[in-house]
Design a protein around this nucleic acid. Sequence first.
DNA 1: TGAAGTCGCGCG
DNA 2: AAAGCGCGCGACTTCA
Length: 862
Amino acid sequence: MPRSLVLNDPGCTRCKLHLETENVCEPGIGPRRSKIMVVSRMPNSGSYQTYLEAALTNAGLDVNEIYFTSVIKCRSFDVEPRKPEFVACAPYLADELAWVKPEFILAFGNEPLKELSGHSGIMKWRGKVIEAKAVPGASMFATISPAAVMRNPRQEPAWRADLKFFANATKGIHSNVASERPKITVAWKKDHLPLLKEALATADTVSYDIETTGFDEFDPDGAIVSVAFTLLHRDKGQSIEDGTVTIWALPLWHPQSPFRLNWRKVLQYVKPGMIKPHRKLAHNGKFDDRWLHKHGVPMDVTFDTMLAAHILDENREKGLKPLARVILGVGEWAISTKNLIDTPLKEVLLYNALDTYYTFLLWTHLRKDLIDQPRLLKLFMRVTMPASPLLREVEQHGIWVDREKLDTAHKIAFDTRDHIDEQLMQWVPDPASPGSSLHAQSNEPWPTKGKTIKPVEVNFNPSNFARWWLFEHLGLPIYERGKTKADGSPGDPSMREGVMFMLRETGHPVIDLLLERAKWQKYCSTYVNRYKEIMDENHRIHTTFKIAGTVTGRMSSGKADDEKISSRADRGRGVNLQQVPRDPFIRGLFGAPPGWAFIEADFSQVELRLGAYIAREPTMLQLFAMGADLHIYIAARALGIPDSQVTKAQRKEVGKPTNFGFLYGMYPKKFVITMWEQQQMVYTLQQAEHFRKTYFREFPGLQKWHTRQKRIAHQNGRVVSPLGRIRHLPDIYSEVQSVVMEAERQAINSPVQAMGSDMNTLSGILINQNLKAMGLRAHVLGVVHDAVNLECYIPDLPRALPMIKDTMENLPFKELFGAEVTVPIISDLQVGSHWGGATELTTDQIYNFDKATRDLILPERS
DNA sequence: TGAAGTCGCGCG
DNA sequence: AAAGCGCGCGACTTCA
């Protein structure tokens, strides 16, 4: 039905915003039939508009030819527009779009993106050409809003690159086709292969990338579709800039490839060339290296552009495409489909080759940035880069699972959960007439699904059913609610553990059952079931580490990104091996195969030691010098008991949270909560305040250090760890106080966490090197923030154990980083057949490892 | 049915 | 007024 255009309606009362503004329903500004439309979230204020126009002009656009408008039409700073407001405003923008009919649309921020394209997630969609759902045929682009850039100036370069990209596109300039680059040589025929091999073998630098099919390199159907190289040749003494750059592509398993049937042989043929150049560049090379190793090419990246970009700026996007956009000003070159097999070979090769070329160009930029920061360069070359081949090995090797134990645990976990469910069912009423049940405390009817009348199913996980059942039907009190909903209605009643502890006081028997059930449910779903699914034929489980996954330099572990796509029936083999429950019921499922021993080597209290060292806190340093255990020390004081009476559980549940909490800026209120939730111990706020004061009086260096870190963060916008790792803290300049305070706490935490994780990574690297140099039969199995796990052939334990301990306790800080570490670093070794329940060895047992010790810790394997 | 957001908990 | 940090993932809900 035709509808007249209503570009603006000053009398609009469609949502509450009209009450909050002087100017109801502001129309856009600019000429009708503009080729370009810019859409913000709300009408821009004068200063934003000025800033925005200057930036657009700078990008090469004529602002007089642009139509500026917004999704929300009423400008208000007091009321946050929510769903109803967006719904109310939508028709106005739709009218404007129909009226102006732009060819190019630029959306600023997530809401305009969503309104115009239906997609959410501005960081994912920025910088791409997106189909504008509202205007068929128009090209749409999105980037972050000028407001976000003004709040956080570090975003500015990338934002300006986005604007430039957009401006070029409106003029028909596409940097991906216009950019000058060497022509790509494709090895189409057998005769070409010697040329490629020779070119590789004589290259100074090779940038490489593979295209693959299948899920991971273990997939029996997995194959390498193609491989490409960008090569740098230079004569002696010639600079990198003056060298000769060539690009090559080699089709392998692709259906149109001439080498489809003998792709493995072809790969083997060029292999000597591939591994010859001393500098090997790749973007996330660990992935390619895993595949190449699997297919007999021992390739290991020496300069990874993803890792370099991350160490230089841990907050930025690290994908090849966003980096190419921001650093090189290159637009999209990706082929549209992810299905390489159905994509014409020529396209695949072009894409593959350009990946290597842009990786190469990125390297020329990133290496300069690193050379400008020598400390960061050292850290990069000595820790970050060597971590890539180490973790490549670790991921390939996997960790051994005791299959029989796993089967038993699986059965126990599911049986236990199901048994608890049966008991809980006694409290569940007849769905038809819940009110008439014996236990009913209310007449509220059984809940239904969303807006339908379909009844929800019984579900004891936190769900609509469980909340209704617990808080309506059984009438238990609501102590806590979740976040207020978008429409302003109160959040759902919380069912978290801490709340359940409080509900215990009601004496209702379902509470303990629910608490117990939650534990077993998690065991079932997250652990035993997953482990069973992903265990390979050698009873091993594999993870994927992210070297550039955290802002502090820690490694993270889990599934690879492409394993997370939920549309895939098989959801990948990866699993997080850094969050295996300490309960021996789960942790004890992992271990070393028969004939081998499992070793967990962890740094004792390392972050606390480093905190004391970095803060130069005299009392703590003295206690550590005396060999004290500060977690026991502080747990005893919090609990009001002698040191000797502190149990392992109390050390973990009271000592650690208290030390780390206060070290990193925790306040008394949270201490009270922690004591209650960990120990069900009641501290009053006054007692907690007193305890905290006592803590800081006892360790006076901490307060000064906190002040120092805050000052540094405010002055420099960043903090630096003793080994040179940088944490940028743009939020320190926020106008919102709570955001600033968060950044201040991060300024305190980051150097400590960064140094601990870099030490741990370095340990893994050096231990692995030493194992190889000594010819020991042992493998690193994983890194867990302050621990390195290994498996070792039992006869080699006497030589491996002392080396591991020595390596960790005597890291070459001075030689590698020029740092003088003045706190004792201690490594504790636990050895056994399995991870959970391994025995901690004394120093004497480690350095004089004998049969008696072996029989003690590995009784069934001696 | 998939995508996105929230909650809660596992680890350090 | 509000205040440990760093992660990954499964279950649930809502929305298109």
